[in-house]
Write a protein that binds this DNA or RNA. Structure first.
Length: 866
RNA sequence: GCCGAAGUGGUGGAAUUGGUAGACACGCUAGACUUAGGAUCUAGUGCCGCAAGGCGUAGGAGUUCAAGUCUCCUCUUCGGUACCA
């Protein structure tokens, strides 16, 4: 046996063994309970980073544990292969997105294999393969048939200089990231999935996902954002037309003193036409339309608006109020029109102050009297209605329903439910994605491609354009086609591709039968494996990816393709791996080794140019932020197992991890401590002893102590994996057991001690085996057992071997710790109290005071109140 | 802005229903052992103090015999984001 653990010899040996024995390849087996564990598949960016290592290590431990528990475990891996980075890399490196992507897949697959992850590689898939996206196109056609997908006009970021559409990420401070020119908004016809049809159901089931973390379901609920409110119709002055608004505060209707329309609202142009305001309105609309309309960007803009020149009538009191168009009114929410009540809405108040509009108080707080002239902010709390005709005097919460009912009798309003969730726009004016399978015919309009013609293969002979735009519209061999309906030869194929979130919304179902070429998936396989029992991935996907996946399963369910609706039974949202940024003004982001390490208080400087490095914030590691740490260095130096155990030991999985590899030496030492311990045990009589598995009561002394510790450790590790995935505490429990073994005289000739040592050593190996599998296999084999440790059952603990005979009792005086003593585990409260009161250290603190009360907490503490 | 989290030694992190704050590690300080290693072993290590003792879980209030844990307020950091009318 080597002096120390040599990963360079051991790890390839067992990786080959697992591969040759096809240990992790699975089939449907109805005699066994299934367990489907999935980690979010990676984007093939080139190299795996620490976030992947952390994510996949967590999953791998659970998979190996469940396997030992007797489950038939599915653990697949694949590639989320379409997306923008491939296009950017293609332009930068003069290659093709496909070549770049497949190269990256090859090297990342190699890295994952080197980590010893237990994937069923036979099920590997990449979403850029026509065999995969074919079924996505097929589903699109089904959805089109059922009107679950539709077209409408909507805005995209547009760079006039580059003549191309930009993703939000490609817009930096309102400027195009390529040419630095201002970005405009451009209206295009785009495809949308009607996810809002499922808003109610998606919301309802947020409460039926007990295996999901609360923060995720809460975020999803808020994202869907159901609000019950009232739609109120205001008559336009001098016209028969109405403007509908949606409000959750109809109780404030009498206080509405102006109205705001979204700049995109269809009435904005017609209302201002012919008025003095026409030009000003047009200029404002143009200005707003050039601004990025994402919330991040909008925050930067001050609330502003322009009078449209038109007025409307408040249906409650007949008051004539001005109609504005304002940048804070959104076309996507409610009706695109806001009834503004400046006295009771802060945004409206700010706007009213800025433009000198009336403020009318209609709700009075209980204790004070509001005066519009002296108000400095809106009053948004509860109160009693005033200035509201027949409704004055009502509590405002009661008035909500009463005013709504009244409006209904007037024919001017009704109760309405509104969702914040918007339909999912899936069109992307990009090359590297799934082609949308429709044809635009000058005669027939939009015509779906025939199912028999699928897949519509993304042409791989296209060259990316320098401006980053899609080459597809200009590629006649792809874009020109015959109309599937009338046969007309000059029809144009749809050249937009799908949002890459579409591929990731169903890949987990495809893993059940990845080779299936007659359907999206084999129904029997999906029935057996789905839903995913445990999904693991970054918390940054808490909303979009997870919500889209839930939506997709509902679509498949509606189409009769599956019997369930929720894709993921349990969810673990893993924290991000973060890193402090080090930025040189000359060279941009620096890796730590490129920056000179400054002494305390000293400035850090760049090794290349000597300039002072800016030590920035701690942010998530990501390709785009160029601060990824390459796990290869760790892997080279320590091997897979030490990298794995270190990732797990550093922090509990749901927590963010600020990367720092200082602690890795400790894990390295621990592994070698176990290695030497195993070697030592093999030299002892324990090598031949059969592991003790009887009751603790039959043991005494060190043997009993060790036996109890081993049983406690099994319980602790099992509970940690099963319950919370807190591997860090599971590992420290095993460290404690190992420390206990080191502290005892293991060479004792006593046969029961030898049996307990054999049991403890076996326990250590088995408990560590999901975490450091190569290491465990090697020790298992060297202890003279047959491979493989992955086929061993998970160790069981005995309930009669968990409690020790003696307990430590803490003594407090007025809640402050003053003394401790040990007592027999069976001692009753009264005797503990006696001992505590008689304690020397305690006597000092209660001397001269009278004991008012003594609180005894069973087997824990005594608190004396004086 | 909104939604969701997090804040504990020099560092990563432990702490059942409120019940010994700092498990387990890293680092550091001594020492031992050496055919000097990427060792290994032993002891110490929250802060202040010679000590008795006091102070300590982002900050401030509160509830309680007892608060890292519960309540309220404030601050900071992180993730998501499409200005919730």
């Amino acid at each position: 046996m080597d002096e120390r653990y040599c990963p360079e010899n051991v790890e390839p040996k067992w990786q080959t063994y697992w591969e040759e024995t096809r240990t992790f390849n699975v089939k449907e087996d109805r005699t066994k309970e299934k367990y489907y564990l999935l980690e979010m598949f990676p984007y093939p960016s080139g190299k795996i980073h620490m976030g992947h290592v952390r994510n996949y290590t967590i999953g791998d431990v659970v998979v190996r544990y469940k396997r030992m528990k007797g489950f038939n475990v599915l653990h697949p891996m694949g590639w989320d292969a379409f997306g923008m980075p491939a296009e950017n890399a293609a332009i930068d490196n003069n290659t093709h997105p496909a070549a770049w992507t497949y190269d990256n897949i090859a090297s990342m697959r190699g890295q994952l294999k080197r980590m010893g992850f237990s994937y069923d590689w036979d099920r590997e898939l990449a979403t850029c393969q026509p065999e995969y996206y074919r079924w996505e196109q097929w589903l699109f056609l089904k959805m089109l048939e059922k009107e679950m997908v539709y077209r409408k006009e909507s805005y995209v970021n547009w760079c006039e200089d580059c003549q191309t559409v930009l993703a939000n990420e490609q817009v930096e401070a309102d400027m195009c990231w390529r040419c630095g020119r201002p970005v405009q908004q451009k209206k295009l016809w785009q495809w949308f999935f009607r996810i809002t049809d499922y808003a109610e159901d998606l919301l309802l089931h947020c409460d039926k996902l007990p295996g999901w973390p609360d923060n995720v379901t809460v975020m999803q609920k808020n994202w869907i954002g159901k609000s019950i409110g009232t739609e109120i119709r205001f008559k336009i002055d001098g016209s028969d037309e109405d403007i509908a608004v949606f409000t959750t505060r109809p109780d404030t209707l009498f206080g509405s003193t102006f109205m705001c329309l979204a700049p995109e609202h269809p009435l904005v142009e017609s209302l201002s036409a012919g008025t003095d305001q026409e030009e000003e309105v047009a200029a404002f609309v143009k200005k707003i339309s050039d601004q990025e309309r994402s919330s991040d960007a909008i925050e930067k803009y001050e609330k502003e608006g322009v009078f449209t020149g038109a007025w409307c009538i408040n249906p409650a009191n007949g008051r004539k109020i001005p109609i504005y168009t304002a940048n804070f009114a959104l076309m996507e929410y409610g009706t695109g029109a806001v009834m503004s009540v400046p006295a009771h809405d802060q945004r409206d108040f700010d706007f009213a102050v800025k433009y000198g509009l009336d403020v009318e108080v209609v709700i009075q707080p209980p204790s004070q009297s509001l005066d519009p002239a002296s108000m400095t902010e809106a009053y948004t709390e509860q109160g009693v209605l005033v200035n509201s005709d027949a409704f004055s005097g009502l509590e405002n919460l009661d008035a909500i329903e009463k005013i709504t009912d009244w409006l209904e009798t007037l024919g001017r309003g009704k109760k309405t439910i509104s969702f914040r969730l918007r339909d999912w726009g899936i069109s992307r004016q990009r090359y590297w994605g799934t082609p949308i399978p429709v044809v635009h015919c000058p005669d027939c309009g939009i015509v779906p491609v025939a199912e028999a013609d699928l897949p519509i293969v993304l042409p791989e002979d296209a060259d990316l354009l320098e401006n980053g735009g899609s080459p597809l519209p200009g590629l006649d061999s792809f874009a020109r086609t015959a109309c599937p309906q009338c046969g007309r030869g000059d029809a144009k194929r749809e050249t937009d591709t799908m949002d890459t979130f579409v591929e990731s919304s169903w890949y987990y179902a495809r893993y059940c039968s990845p080779g299936c070429d007659t359907a999206m998936f084999d129904r029997d396989a999906v029935t057996y494996w789905m839903p995913v029992d445990q999904y693991i991935g970054g918390v940054e996907h808490a909303i979009l990816h997870l919500l889209y996946s839930r939506y997709f399963m509902r679509v498949l369910n509606t189409l009769g393709l599956i019997d369930f609706k929720e894709p993921f039974t349990r969810l673990l949202t893993q924290g991000m791996v973060c890193k402090e940024t080090l930025t040189c003004p000359e060279h941009g982001y620096l890796f730590p080794e490129e920056a000179g390490v400054g002494e305390e208080g000293e400035e850090i400087s760049c090794r290349k140019c000597g300039k002072t490095v800016d030590v920035g914030r701690v942010i998530k590691m990501s390709k785009s932020k160029k601060n990824v740490i390459d796990p290869n260095d760790l892997l080279e130096k320590y091997g897979a197992d030490i990298t794995r155990i270190f990732c797990l030991f550093a922090a509990p999985p749901e927590k963010d991890l600020e990367w720092n590899d200082d602690g890795v030496e400790g894990c390295h030492r621990f592994i070698n401590r176990v290695w030497r311990l195993a070697a030592h045990c093999a030299d002892q009589a324990a090598a031949d002893a059969s592991p003790y598995r009887g009751p603790a009561a039959d043991l005494a002394g060190d043997a009993k102590k060790l036996y109890i510790k081993a049983n406690q450790t099994i319980k602790k590790v099992t509970d940690d994996i099963e319950g919370s995935f807190h591997f860090n505490t599971a590992i420290s429990a095993v460290m404690e057991l190992v420390n206990t073994m080191y502290s005892l005289d293991l060479a004792s000739e006593a046969s029961d001690m030898q049996q307990v040592v054999a049991f403890s050593m076996e326990t250590v190996i088995l408990l560590l085996s999901p975490i450091v599998p190569h290491f465990a296999e090697e020790l298992w084999e060297q202890s003279g057992r047959e491979p493989s440790v992955v086929d061993q059952p998970w160790p069981e603990y005995r309930n009669d071997a968990l409690a020790t005979d003696e307990i430590t009792i803490v003594v407090q005086v007025n809640g402050k710790l003053r003394s401790k003593f040990t007592a027999d585990a069976g001692s009753d409260d009264e005797s503990l109290k006696e001992t505590a009161l008689g304690d020397e250290a305690v006597a000092k603190h209660i001397a001269g005071k009278s004991v008012k009360k003594v609180i005894v907490v069973k087997k824990k503490l005594v608190n004396i109140v004086v």
